[in-house]
């Protein structure tokens, strides 16, 4: 089973994932680092703002570092929960650019079930909302659950 997540109301999704998990299965959790959001900041700030590239890059770096840290902490807490409850849990953090490799694994049937938690929130960059993985899933023979901000939106058995 594979869990991909955004941070929006994640607790409920983690709970559900563990409920679906059997002792024979392994839960692989992947935090996808959304680099587009902080990357869109320098452009926005330098176009409408007052200070230059260094300041905007500073902001981008701070935000990226924070996202990475949050991802690592969340993954750690899921690992700890898995260990405590006696499940096999493997955790990993990837950049969004690494999604094609993940898609390949999904196509090759590496996972029995897929769980994704998206957020409906919108932001400056249209790229952030480009959930191309949705179209990809339609052509895939795998059971999946898609959550938006912790609420189950689509399910395929």
């Amino acid at each position: 089973m594979l869990l991909l997540f955004s941070f929006a109301s994640l607790d409920k999704v983690i709970e559900d994932s563990f409920k679906l998990l059997t002792k024979e299965n392994q839960l692989q959790v992947i935090a996808v680092l959304e680099e587009e959001l902080p990357a869109s900041l320098p452009k926005l700030i330098s176009q409408i703002g007052f200070l230059g590239e260094k300041v905007t890059e500073d902001v981008k770096e701070i935000i990226l570092k924070e996202y990475k840290k949050r991802g690592v902490e969340t993954l750690k807490s899921i690992s700890a929960k898995g260990m405590e409850e006696g499940y096999q849990v493997k955790v990993e953090q990837i950049a969004k650019t690494a999604l094609p490799n993940l898609k390949q694994d999904l196509q090759q049937g590496e996972f029995s079930q897929l769980i994704i938690n998206y957020t409906r929130d919108q932001f400056i960059s249209k790229d952030v909302l480009a959930y191309e993985i949705d179209d990809f899933l339609e052509g895939l023979d795998i059971s999946y659950r898609i959550y938006y901000d912790g609420k189950l939106a689509t399910e395929k058995q």
Binding site: L44, G49, E66, D121, Q122
Partner: peptide, 19 residues
């Protein structure tokens, strides 16, 4: 976030939604 850089910077912290 589009109108004012402080909004964009605060929003990018990921602590709140636009709503």
């Amino acid at each position: 976030p589009m109108g004012s850089p402080p909004n964009a910077i605060a929003y990018s912290s990921g602590y709140y939604r636009i709503s």
